Computed example of a mutant assay.
Amino acid sequence: MSITVAVPTGNIGKFLLPKLLGSGQEVTVLTRSPQKLDPSIRERVIIKQGALEDENFILEATKGTKALYWLNPGNKKTEDVHGWYKLYGKSVSNAVQKNGIEFVVNISTIIPEVVEAGVADGIVHVEEYLNQTDANVVHLRPGFFLENLLTQISDLKSKGTITFPIPADREVAFIATSDIADVAADYLLHRNWKGKKIHILHGAEDLTFEAAAKRLSDAVGSTLKYNYIPLENFYEDLVSKGVTKAAAEGYTDIYRSMHLPREVEGIRSSETTTPTTVELWGKRVLKPKLDSL
């Protein structure tokens, strides 16, 4: 019986695969683009090429799966955000039920379903579909990926700015994707839970973007400043880059939800706290990226 990993080349998947393979487990990967896999990984996994929204592909590709890692890629060209994620939910839940997959680790969102949050709210549809299966399912709800900063690496290098539509004084649960991979790997390898559960992941500590920028400045040895962009400007920028209005609204709504009090993301505990601090991530990941430019 195999552990099957969807989106193996993503920010989490690239850390997850070595951990699973290091345990001696048989690993199957589901991917549109096998060529993106690291060559050292590619020869050690079973590759199934196809689209995650293709119900027939997922049904066939997950036969013989004991534990499934599932992540829902976004779609910046969709005209129906909720419909897109419902398509994923139907695809994966059908395969889980028909193939008798016993364990599922689903990457969801820290923003709960009570918040109207566009794409994040759409992702919760996948939780709902998986909860209707007979599988043991854990929904990992991580905070703000530190790797999101890498999409602005050019501005970080040339201007020393970090730009997001999140209020500067709003505390954020920053998390390194390597820590998410550690938690996912533990669930997939040990398979020691029953039923359906939610596991929120808050990262090492809550910080405002201004405080995070200062920590990152110390880590990389140069001054970084936070630049708040209004929600309207963020939306317009997405549309100008070819994102559909529906998708742009969906992504903007995620950040609109982050204007709400921190409490909507759950109470921090030892179970939700992960080890990699913003400073450590800055030294390990951001500094080498900036130095290479």
Rank of each mutant, 00 (worst) to 15 (best):
S2N: 12
S2D: 08
S2M: 06
V5I: 07
T9S: 04
T9H: 02
G10H: 06
S23D: 10
S23I: 01
T28C: 02
T31P: 06
V45E: 09
I46L: 11
I46V: 10
Q49M: 04
G50C: 05
L52H: 06
A61D: 00
T62K: 00
K63C: 00
G64N: 00
G64V: 10
K66I: 08
K66Y: 08
A67W: 01
Y69D: 00
W70G: 00
K76M: 13
K77G: 04
E79V: 05
L87P: 03
S91P: 02
V92A: 05
S93D: 11
N94A: 13
A95P: 02
V96C: 03
Q97G: 05
Q97R: 09
G100K: 03
F103H: 13
V105W: 00
V105T: 00
T109N: 15
V114R: 14
E116Y: 05
A120F: 12
H125I: 03
E127K: 12
Y129Q: 09
Y129F: 13
Y129L: 01
L130N: 08
N131S: 15
N136P: 02
N136T: 01
N136E: 03
V137N: 15
V137H: 12
H139N: 15
R141L: 08
R141C: 12
G143F: 01
F145T: 02
L149P: 03
L149K: 08
L150P: 15
Q152P: 06
L156V: 13
K157N: 09
S158N: 14
T161S: 09
I162P: 12
I166L: 13
P167A: 08
P167G: 05
A168Y: 06
D169L: 11
R170T: 09
R170D: 11
E171Y: 01
I175G: 12
S178R: 09
I180E: 09
Y187H: 11
Y187W: 06
N192M: 05
W193P: 07
K194P: 02
K196V: 03
H199Q: 15
T208F: 05
T208V: 07
F209Q: 10
E210G: 04
A211S: 12
A211E: 14
K214W: 09
R215G: 03
G221K: 10
S222F: 15
T223F: 12
Y228L: 13
L231I: 12
N233V: 02
N233W: 10
F234R: 05
E236H: 13
D237L: 14
I254G: 04
R256L: 09
L260N: 13
E263S: 09
G266I: 07
R268E: 10
S269H: 11
S269N: 11
S270Y: 15
E271W: 06
T274P: 06
T274M: 07
L280D: 10
L280F: 10
W281M: 10
L286K: 02
D291M: 03
